[in-house]
Design a protein around this nucleic acid. Structure first.
Length: 955
RNA sequence: CCGGGCGUGGCGGAAAGGCAGACGCUACGGACUUAAAAUCCGUUGACCGCAAGGUCGUGUGGGUUCGAUUCCCACCGCCCGGACCA
């Protein structure tokens, strides 16, 4: 009987489904079973269906999940659909189908494809972010954000009612701009700078003002902000969704414009998001990306008086120690003070420059980064440390969005300031000296060193000078220590149809109110015309009936209220889905607290690196808010995280003409000629080493010429070949469809191949040719345990022969360790080796076969089930205990010991594994092959590394 | 320009300071077959040699060590991310 994956896989997939083999037990049923929560990044179900990249991560977690089930763990392993968002809606617009319809169809298709792979999900826990039963709780979490503020005393979120209490108790006071501060006179609190007398007490505000102040403190708030408006998509986008001044989706241009938007106060969590990274078992590169994104920098804010004006310019600097070296000031063109301070003479120039930079796209600004532009305002600022007059310029190299939108320029110690000063002939004053050597006269010295020309700082190293300067500024009331972040608050509203509606209603003067939790979900209305309006007015404004808010809520009923028409961004649903898997059908809570405590945190989270700063930062933020509000029990959601590497398309051979061709590699091809193929005319080359023929997929036109109706390689054209792999893409035509592979070789073979390609984290090219290796392996396993027409296998109850028994135990150890550390390629290699040994036996001891099948089970589960049944075992193998290895059997009684002379291998001796050093040296020195190397020489040193090797140093 | 990672046969890759190239693919030789495909067995880093054996070899140059693909320094190349962030 030959191995037939198609029928086997169908049979066992049906069995698993019917018997709910992979059902995760709720804590009440689980008893004292330990848990593992193994999570995949759930897919966005696109119309294109699964590509080979999806199953890579899914297979990895599937193997781990199955392994832990064998180890006796209660495993939570689930799948769901992140189905709201821009691409679904764009596709719907393009095909003129309602997104509900296309999304349903895509989910069906994804589910079918994923189930075909036989992954061990608990399908009873499947979730869909567009299901009202799910997004009801997304809205509920939004309400928690809306009804909370960030308490500066405890550095955590609290219900907004607590804020009112703090204000009433005057622990907090309100600044003129409506911002809330710790009361400087509050006992035990450090005084903050600024004029204490400008702070006002809560009681001095009227009701409308109080409302405004509270709204300004919510974790979800509205603000008039300069947003990334994308007219191509008809929506605003988060900074994270804009790449090089274009939309990440679609690549449409972005324009900055002020709009009223919902924001989430993620910046309040900057420090905690940064600090808690240290507690996580994540790749360093990914942590670093998050650190860079949060972009914490420590420095000072300094206030500069403006000559002849009441106003001051506040700047942020990381180098307060260089304040004596400031020679001019720069404001961002959009800075609010520009109009007021510009002198009459400079007015035209300044306005012209402002208009020009406003029209410049972000992209243009970036491209002009090296070439500094700017205009003098005619005004002067006063350096607070030495009363020097500093000319105030405007320039677009200063960004309104970072720091205070204004800088003090220290050209001697900042490269941008240096370039600007050079161009506009501004003075340069050195105030830091390197500890050793001298400063170059044609570049800025940006390192730390020793302060000079800096009055009271002279002679101090940079770090000391910084803190001295901050002390001085604070004493003089001219500045203070300050920490700045690149991270901005999260722009949370979109002018789209296909997203979660906000559980918010508005009155006619723009006040917003939360709907009651009992009114959730606020369902998305079924409207025919869901297309973007092309204006900032969201499509939901066209749902006239839905728009009118009717309620029994007595507080809101009397007003004339309409629903918020913005929707939430794509990321909302994925911020908390890992919590819903724990308790997917709970109609009374987001998640039951007992279940949450049992399953959290996620033990292993696998997904693509593309979510390094978006999803993973947002989800951590929401989780921390939920933690502060006591809804979840862990400070972080994802304890261990692994990024699977991209699978690239098959290697392409590019042919180049040698003269002028840049991407030339050593020419390994001969007999290059032009040939007709099924796809058309192509260049073909014979590989010198392998003799294989390769076809070029890209050919420079100059290499071929037309002769009659044929193309021929030009006479004497010299050719070089560059072999490279590219990202799979439709346009390149190198996308591999998993369905075809599964149809030809089966799911087991497909998953083995993907896992065998190389390390999970590594980027690696697809190579269809290599699949046959795994096919041969699986057939070999089948032949060695079941047999086929050429080989009859007998099972016996004999003990396992010693040599193969030792190998079996080594394999048990290696496969287990490799799966735990996600090194599936070497785990498979180990099983291949053991199978190759099995092939030499015609009588297989039953225990050997059984153990082998269990080891194979996480990696090739369908075949393992079938073999398990063949061995006369009842189904299913999935929860059968993982074998234990016997440590005493890991090492052979006799081992082969390499012998080196001066670090070079000269012989290998068979020794007793437990022989002592002296015996071994004696053996070495009497070995025939070693004698010639040591005779007549002095042995300077003998090294024996236990059971590993011997090295003699002779001369 | 800054940050992170990587560099090993014809290819994918093994080797957590200790036998470089596990395992798989390819290629070559053989078996089976009328033949091909499939399958099975053997060989397969380069060079010298009939062989025994020897020499070289993990991007380049240096260092630490009895011993370096592995650790350190500099350089070259590739990949990923960020980038006028004061």
């Amino acid at each position: 009987m030959a191995y037939n994956p198609t029928s086997i896989e169908k049979k066992w997939q049906a069995y698993w489904q019917a018997n709910k083999t992979f059902r995760a037990l709720d804590p009440a049923e689980a008893g004292d079973k330990p848990k593992k929560y193994i999570l995949d990044m759930f897919p966005y179900p696109s119309g294109a269906g699964l590509h080979v990249g999806h199953p890579e991560g899914y297979t990895a977690t599937d193997i781990v999940s199955r392994y832990y089930r064998h180890q006796g763990f209660n495993v939570l392993h689930t799948m769901g659909w992140d189905a709201f968002g821009l691409p679904a809606e764009q596709y719907a617009v393009k095909t003129n189908t309602h997104p509900r319809v296309t999304t349903e169809a895509n989910i069906q298709n994804f589910r079918k494809q994923i189930q075909m792979l036989g992954l061990s999900y608990d399908w009873d826990r499947e979730i869909d972010t567009t299901d009202p039963k799910y997004y009801r709780w997304t809205q509920w979490i939004f309400l928690q954000l809306y009804n909370s503020y960030f308490d500066p005393f405890d550095n955590q979120a609290k219900p907004i009612g607590h804020l009112v209490a703090e204000l009433e108790n005057e622990n907090l006071v309100v600044a003129p701009d409506g911002s809330v501060h710790i009361n400087p006179v509050h006992e035990g609190m450090e005084a903050i700078s600024g004029d204490v007398n400008t702070f006002r007490k809560w009681a001095s505000f009227d009701a409308a003002e109080q409302r405004g102040i509270l709204d300004g403190q919510r974790l979800a708030y509205t603000d008039e902000v300069a947003v990334n408006w994308c007219s191509g998509l008809g929506t605003v986008l988060a900074n994270e969704e804009v790449i090089d001044g274009k939309s990440e989706v679609g690549g449409y241009p972005i324009e900055r414009r002020p709009m009223r938007q919902w924001m989430l106060r993620i910046t309040a969590y900057s420090d905690r998001l940064l600090a808690d990274l240290d507690t996580l078992d994540w790749p360093d590169s990914l942590k670093e990306m998050q650190r860079n994104w949060i972009g914490r920098s420590v420095g000072a804010e300094v206030d500069f008086e403006i000559e002849g004006s009441e106003d001051e310019i506040r700047v942020f600097t990381t180098r307060p120690d260089t304040l004596f070296g400031a020679t001019y000031m720069v404001l961002a063109p959009e800075h609010e003070l520009v109009t007021q301070i510009t002198t009459f003479d400079q007015k035209v120039a300044v306005e012209t420059y402002r208009a020009a930079s406003k029209n410049k796209s972000e992209r243009d600004r970036m491209q002009d980064a090296k070439d500094k532009t700017g205009v003098f305002t005619g005004a002067y600022a006063i350096n607070p440390v030495n009363d020097e007059k500093l000319p105030i310029w405007i320039a677009d190299y200063v960004l309104m969005g970072y720091g205070t939108g204004a800088i003090m320029a220290v050209p001697a110690h900042d490269e941008r300031d240096w370039a600007f000063a050079q161009k506009f002939n501004l003075s340069i004053k050195q105030v830091v000296q390197p500890v050793q050597g001298h400063v170059s006269s044609h570049t800025a010295f940006t390192e730390t060193g020793i302060a000079i020309n800096s009055n009271f700082l002279d002679g101090m190293p940079t770090e000391k000078a910084k803190s001295e300067m901050i002390d001085y500024l604070e004493a003089e009331n001219a500045g203070h220590k300050s920490i700045n972040y690149k991270l901005r608050d999260w722009l949370f509203s979109r002018q789209r149809y296909w997203g979660e509606p906000f559980p918010i209603v508005l009155d006619n003067v723009g006040n917003h109110f939360a709907v009651g939790e009992d009114e959730l979900p606020v369902t998305l209305p079924q409207i025919e015309d869901f297309k973007p309006t092309g204006t900032p007015e969201p499509p939901l404004s066209k749902a006239t009936d839905w728009l009118k808010y009717q309620t029994n809520n007595s507080q809101l009923a009397s007003r004339n209220l309409t629903r918020e028409t913005n929707t939430m961004p794509q990321w909302a649903g994925s911020c908390w889905y890992y919590l819903r898997y724990i308790d997917p059908n709970n109609a009374n809570a987001m998640v039951d607290q007992t279940k949450e405590k049992y399953w959290m945190p996620v033990d292993l989270y696998v997904g693509g690196v593309e979510h390094a700063v978006l999803h993973l930062l947002y989800a951590r933020f929401w989780h921390k808010v939920l933690f502060d509000l006591r809804y979840v029990s862990t400070i972080e959601p994802f304890q261990r995280l692994v990024n699977q590497g991209l699978i690239l398309g098959e290697t392409e051979f590019h042919f180049f003409e040698i003269p002028g061709g840049k991407a030339i590699s050593a020419t390994e091809f001969t007999n290059i000629s032009e040939e007709a193929t099924d796809q058309g005319l192509k260049l073909a080359g014979i590989h010198k080493q392998t003799g294989q023929k390769h076809f070029a997929t890209r050919v420079i036109e100059q290499l071929v010429e037309k002769k009659g109706d044929r193309y021929v390689l030009k006479a004497n054209a010299e050719i070089a070949v560059d072999a490279r792999s590219f990202k799979m893409s439709k346009s390149r035509g190198n996308v591999v469809n998993p369905d075809d592979i599964v149809k030809d070789y089966g799911a087991d073979c497909f998953r083995l191949y993907e896992m065998y390609m190389g390390p999970l984290e590594a980027q690696k090219p697809w190579n269809t040719r290599d699949i046959v290796g795994m096919w041969r392996f699986l057939n070999g396993v089948w032949r060695n345990i079941v047999g086929d027409e050429d080989k009859t296998v007998t099972l016996s109850d004999d003990p396992i022969p010693e040599a193969i028994d030792r190998q079996l135990h080594r394999t048990i150890k290696k496969v287990g360790e490799d799966i735990e550390s996600l090194r599936f390629n070497t785990a498979i290699a180990e099983l291949i080796k053991l199978n190759n040994e099995l092939g030499k036996l015609t009588t297989i001891p039953r225990y050997l076969a059984e153990t082998f099948v269990i080891l194979l089970s996480p990696l090739a589960p369908h075949m393992a089930e079938e073999l398990w049944a063949h061995l006369g075992k009842p189904p299913s193998i999935q929860h059968v205990a993982w074998p234990k290895y016997d440590a005493s059997k890991l090492v052979d009684a006799q081992i082969e010991l390499p012998v080196q002379i001066n670090g070079k291998l000269r012989d290998k001796l068979i020794i007793d594994a437990d022989a002592d050093e002296a015996t071994i040296f004696q053996q070495v020195e009497s070995a025939e092959k070693i004698k010639p190397w040591i005779e007549g020489k002095t042995i300077r040193k003998r090294v024996y590394v236990s059971k590993k090797m011997v090295n003699y140093v002779v001369s």
